[in-house]
């Protein structure tokens, strides 16, 4: 989905050429979403094929400009009107690792949890430091960072909850299967 829709949203403001889209996209999402210029061009080609954007001449320096079509605009409105579904995560490595750790004898699950918790906290510290340096009026970047911060926090809370369950379970003693 969203690189496509992200580009449509930018083109809704004004027609742009590929490099310009790349720069603007980076500014708006504050690098939370690394995207190379090649992805921009392939996405633009697909959008044109699907009739969502159309060529709109060049800027005089030979850069091909793209503009939104009416169906592109419709697609964009639909996107904003529709909630994002919680993405299916068919392979959540962490959840699988913990589930497996519970069944492997001799593994200190509490240790596995703590190792993960420390790593998650370090991520959170790094994100928070970046947030400290954001200019207060750079709202887009702040929102993007907050999103990552709340996700990391959710993981930390889930780890806490895993530990509580583990300690409350009669099948384990101090985190190791009896």
């Amino acid at each position: 989905m969203s690189v496509k829709l992200g580009l449509l949203a930018l083109l809704d403001e004004q027609p742009m050429y590929g490099y310009q889209l790349h720069t603007t996209f980076k500014e708006r999402t504050g690098d939370t979403w690394p995207l190379n210029i090649g992805q921009i061009y392939t996405t633009l080609a697909r959008l044109e094929r699907d009739g969502l954007v159309e060529p709109a001449g060049d800027d005089g320096d030979g850069h091909a400009i793209y503009a939104l079509t009416d169906s592109g605009r419709d697609e964009l409105r639909r996107w904003f009107a529709t909630p994002v579904a919680r993405a299916d995560r068919p392979r959540d490595e962490l959840a699988i690792k913990l589930a497996v750790a519970l069944t492997v004898s001799g593994v200190d699950v509490r240790e596995v949890l703590q190792t993960q918790r420390t790593a998650t906290l370090r991520d959170l510290q790094d994100l928070t430091r970046q947030k400290r340096e954001v200019a207060p009026d750079d709202l887009a970047w702040l929102l993007a960072l907050d999103s990552l911060i709340f996700q990391a926090e959710a993981e930390a809370r889930w780890l806490d909850s895993c530990e509580e369950r583990l300690l409350g379970s009669p099948a384990y003693r101090n985190g190791v299967a009896r």
Binding site: D31, T32, R117, T118, D123, Q125, D126, R129
Partner: peptide, 18 residues
């Protein structure tokens, strides 16, 4: 039982997001 320190700042300032 453990300790976490923020990463050292990198030149482009985002150790995590890159």
């Amino acid at each position: 039982v453990d300790e976490s320190r923020a990463s050292e700042a990198t030149a482009n300032g985002d150790p995590m997001l890159s």
